[in-house]
């Protein structure tokens, strides 16, 4: 197992290296630059001053080399869209907020998602099942920005029991967390349902029932454990996205999190920030996949890893 982990980490570093190259090339292939004029064209000299100030007058390979060299020493540069601080400062300031939002959202999504999923599976084709399906569908279907606006109008404008936005005490968390949780909750509920249903038909369940085990213990001991495997597969990729914030939810509820920067960085051609965010998410996803695969092996004894899962 240890050899496997080391092997995977080495692979991850290679992947990260490839990712930086692809991102760097792609972002420089996009037309426009970070200091293009907004209104009137600047003189060529004025523009050259700006480019020189940020080292953008150098050839691309040199910019890339310099970036990587600094990044290895944990210097990720200065964000063009917020030059008063470093990229590290900016992420340190905004990310914890997104993590808090994401963590609360995930907790809500998982508890309710799994509950709904199990309920609709054991009551398959009843009103409970259909109701859950409808609810889950609504959760994914109606765009989060639509639900957000609906919530704000109802709870803040009409009833005035919650603030329209901001990020302070628990009263400011309620609406964004619920909106945030709806999508993942719906997905989790659906996967739980289909996975539980599948497992209920497995031979081992029949065997367990035949042995005279109570339905409840069959469900919770055998079925649930085995149903968690596909859940792990979907939870993995979900985690980094959820933990790095949502553009829409954070924007609409005025939450000073990291989510907005995934879009503004591209619109502003904020090269250091694009690189940093890609790296951040890449590292996160890499780690999450690694952990998922390890857990996978632990939870499901049918899957065993020796080197490269042969």
């Amino acid at each position: 197992m240890i050899r496997y982990i080391i092997y995977r980490i080495a692979g991850l570093i290679g992947v990260l290296f490839l990712v930086t190259i692809i991102t760097f090339s792609l972002m420089h292939a996009v037309p426009g630059g970070p200091f293009d004029e907004e209104k009137m064209p600047l003189s060529a000299e004025a523009k050259a001053n700006i480019l020189r100030k940020y080292g953008l007058d150098r050839p691309l390979y040199e910019q890339y080399g310099r970036y990587m060299w600094n990044a290895l020493q944990f210097d990720f540069g200065i964000p063009f869209q917020s030059p008063g601080e470093t990229v590290t400062d900016l992420i340190a300031r905004t990310w914890p907020i997104s993590m808090q939002l994401g963590g609360m959202g995930l907790a809500v999504a998982f508890s309710f998602g799994i509950l709904l999923g199990i309920l609709s599976a054991i009551r398959q084709n009843t009103w409970m099942d259909y109701g859950t399906t409808m609810l889950a569908t609504l959760g994914i279907t109606v765009p989060s920005f639509a639900i957000s606006i609906l919530f704000i109008v109802i709870f803040a404008t009409i009833w005035r029991i919650l603030p329209t936005g901001g990020w302070g005490g628990p009263e400011t968390w309620i609406m964004p967390v619920i909106v945030y949780a709806l999508g993942p909750m719906a997905i989790i509920a659906r996967y739980t349902r289909s996975s539980v249903l599948e497992n209920l038909r497995m031979d081992y369940v029949r065997t367990a029932r035949a042995k005279g085990l109570k339905e409840r213990s069959v469900l919770f001991i055998h079925v649930l454990k085995n149903s968690l495997i596909p859940l792990l597969t979907i939870m993995g990729p979900m985690l980094p996205g959820v933990m790095t914030g949502s553009l829409f939810v954070e924007g609409i509820f005025r939450i000073p999190g990291l989510g907005q920067f995934f879009v503004t960085s591209i619109f502003e051609r904020d090269y250091p920030m694009i690189m940093a965010l890609t790296l951040l998410v890449a590292v996160l996803i890499g780690i999450v996949y690694l952990i998922t695969d390890i857990l996978y092996a632990l939870v499901d004894p049918r899957v065993r890893y020796t080197r490269g899962s042969k």
């Binding site: 992947v15 990712v19 972002m27 553009l247 995934f262 960085s265 694009i274 890609t278 890449a282």
Partner: peptide
Amino acid sequence: DVMSVFPSLLFAILI
């Protein structure tokens, strides 16, 4: 791995 570690929104917007 290479494809999935890209933040998909960021990647789609870049493209």
